[in-house]
Design a protein around this nucleic acid. Structure first.
Length: 411
RNA sequence: GCGAUCGUAGCUCAGUCGGUUAGAGCGCCGGUUUGUGGUACCGGAGGUCGCGGGUUCGGAUCCCGUCGAUCGCCCCA
């Protein structure tokens, strides 16, 4: 006998209520995505490594230490997708989807990141994803956010707020970044070790720091608003105005930045309100949906400058917040109370299923306990068959109207 | 990558200052009882105490390592 291999660290075998909640999230996303007329795309799970390295940014954590990269038998460096956006941008270019631009795309599936697993954080995790490629108008940002907002509502998730910021256009962002580096470099020695590191790699992130030593200097740090060009400001105003008109609630989050290099203008995250039930369910992995505008990405992959916006949300995190939702639909249990009644019972079950009723057969174990098993399953109706005096008797136990519906299906 | 806590039956856990055949509840299987049925009682199966090494006459219990889980940092969805 050999030992049973363990599952890979950070992977999950999802079953039972968790799997139902997972499916509920995906099904709801599919429904809402059709409402907004996003087109479904299926993407490869792996790409050439450069697809991610060039677009996400060499210095980001994702590229520098979290990718599952390997050489295939031909010596090519490939990587398991750590996100959707880069692959979609690549597909847009290699398939000539410019002809459909602007295209609204939706997909979902597994992503892979070599991270330390935690609650709501896995090495193979799953996202739903929505992108609009080839649309420069703020109205695209608004539509995408309206869809996200409606999705969360339809999932029954409450106590979550849209945090919104703008990073400005490329020039605004650079000017702001330079000013931030200057501001923090002056007090470098008083910053936390982590922020001293961030100063070189990702200065925007210092604004997010939870360390008290940093927060003293964050308060009077330069604000993006001082650096916005007139166009960038007008763009952001159009987005916020559109959200208000669409009835999407939001709050300005000046220190919200995105970790990936390709973001411009709009950046946003849906985050549970402090002290809410949602916040306690999620622990420290609090962002459930995040995204923004990435006008520079397609260009970094060698395409023509192409504006785009998108977001992604973690299915596992959303499923945690849906809780008991997505419960079982009405179903029927058919019981064969003794083995002589199995044929009749099985035939009846097939009729019920053909009539669109979901149902299951109980015909094993102690005959005396079969009915009790059916009762414990808490079904909509129980159809019991038992053989007595040479004949097979049928007994339907349910509320009167349901008994009639079951009788009709069996007739 | 760093820090902390934890790993005993299918599930939730007890047992651990080292000492005879490792326990409970629930669940599962069977029997009895009841019976147009959700009850009660009895019995049974199931664990090399995550894995490996060390100390010891003796390790589920102490030490080290490893794998995994949880929480925080970091990062992100």
């Amino acid at each position: 006998m050999s030992k049973t291999p363990q599952a890979i660290r950070g992977t999950q075998d999802i079953f039972g209520p968790d799997a139902e909640a997972f499916a509920f999230v995906v099904e709801t996303f599919e429904r809402v995505r059709r409402l907004y007329r996003f087109r479904r795309v299926e993407m490869p799970v792996f790409e050439k490594t450069e697809v991610f390295a060039r677009s996400i940014g060499e210095t980001t954590d994702i590229v520098s230490k979290e990718m599952y990269s390997f050489e295939d038998r031909g010596g090519e460096s490939l990587t398991l997708r750590p996100e959707f956006t880069a692959g979609i941008a690549r597909a847009f270019l290699t398939n000539g989807w410019q002809q459909h631009a602007p295209v609204k795309l939706a997909t979902h599936g597994p992503l892979f990141r070599y991270e330390r697993p935690q609650k709501g954080r896995y090495r193979q995790f799953h996202q739903i994803d929505a992108e609009i490629v080839g649309a420069a108008e703020p109205q695209a940002d608004v539509e995408l956010l309206a869809m996200a907002d409606q999705l969360l509502k339809e999932l029954g998730i409450e106590g979550v707020t849209l945090h919104l910021n703008t990073l400005g256009d490329g020039d605004s962002r650079e000017a702001w970044r330079t000013a931030l580096v200057e501001h923090f470099r002056a007090v470098r020695d008083e910053l936390s070790e982590e922020s001293q590191e961030r100063l070189e790699k990702n200065p925007l992130r210092i604004l997010d720091s939870k360390d008290r030593r940093d927060q003293r200097f964050v308060a009077d740090a330069p604000k993006i608003d001082q650096f916005l060009s007139d166009e960038a400001r007008a763009f952001f105003d159009a987005v916020t105005g559109g959200l208000d008109a669409a009835g999407v609630k939001w709050t300005r989050a000046e220190s919200l930045v995105r970790g990936l290099d390709y973001y411009r203008h709009t950046a946003f995250e849906f985050i549970p309100d402090e002290g809410s039930e949602a916040a306690s369910k999620l622990g420290s992995q609090s962002t459930i949906l995040g995204g923004g505008r990435y006008d520079g990405l397609i260009e970094s992959l060698g395409g023509a400058p192409t504006p785009a916006v998108g977001w992604a949300a973690g299915i596992e995190r959303l499923a945690m917040l849906c809780g008991e939702r997505g419960g079982e639909p009405d179903f029927v249990i058919v019981v064969a109370e003794d083995d002589m009644a199995i044929t009749e019972a099985a035939a009846a079950l097939q009729k019920l299923r053909a009539a669109g009723r979901s149902g299951e057969l109980i015909a094993t174990g102690s005959p005396r306990k079969r009915f009790d098993k059916a009762v414990k399953a808490d079904p909509w109706a129980i159809v019991a068959f038992s053989s007595r005096e040479g004949g097979v008797h049928r007994n339907i136990k349910a509320d009167a109207p349901i008994v009639r519906m079951v009788e009709d299906a069996l007739a």
